[in-house]
């Protein structure tokens, strides 16, 4: 029995040392600042998986509007169906399946488009329309008031172009900027 206790102790010391060594080695590269998931809007192909792959029933990904590069177009290709009957707010003319985009007249011929976030499901239909034919001011971002920051982001796993990665929590958004793609 004594021999067993001795070898048990030996194994324990070895395990503590091994675990300490491993933790020390990992702690060297470990980051104190925590990170969050975010979409690189320049990589995003607006495939629409963000709306369906998130673990949340209503995805943490939403469309955001970068007003500085928006053309304020009357015929907004992110707002309207490809061949709308009329350029008005009629539901049959809208591209957004949930009517989450608000169209507001500013001055002739300019209209402002903003996202009603609680309605947005992150389907990226508007993003696709705006990026293909417009200035690309609509883009997707993970909203951190909703994101659960899962250990493995299930959208990142499903993203066809690996546009989702971890970014420092101090700068949690990768909004489009006036300088364009970095």
């Amino acid at each position: 029995m004594k021999r067993r206790v001795f070898f048990g102790g030996l194994a324990r010391v070895a395990a503590v040392l091994g675990l300490g060594g491993l933790a020390g080695r990992l702690a060297q590269s470990a980051q104190a600042a925590h990170t969050v998931w975010q979409i690189d809007p320049w990589k995003c192909t607006s495939c629409g998986k963000c709306a369906t792959e998130c673990v949340l029933e209503l995805s943490a990904v939403k469309c955001v509007q970068f007003y500085d590069i928006c053309g304020y177009c009357d015929f907004c290709t992110g707002y309207f169906e490809p061949q709308p009957n009329k350029l008005n707010t009629g539901a049959e003319n809208q591209l957004c399946p949930t009517g989450a985009i608000v169209r507001k007249f500013i001055e002739d011929p300019y209209y402002e488009y903003s996202i009603n976030e609680p309605l947005c499901v992150g389907c990226a239909k508007c993003v696709k329309g705006c990026t293909l034919f417009g200035n690309g001011s609509f883009h997707l971002q993970i909203r951190h008031d909703r994101c659960l920051n899962c250990n493995e982001c299930s959208i990142a796993k499903a993203c066809p172009v690996q546009a989702i990665s971890r970014v420092p929590a101090g700068k949690p958004y990768l909004f489009k900027t006036l300088e364009g793609r970095k």
Partner: peptide, 12 residues
């Protein structure tokens, strides 16, 4: 490389 952003419709 840095790519310019789309400016198909100059912002008003």
């Amino acid at each position: 490389t840095a790519a310019p952003i789309n400016q198909r419709f100059p912002p008003p």
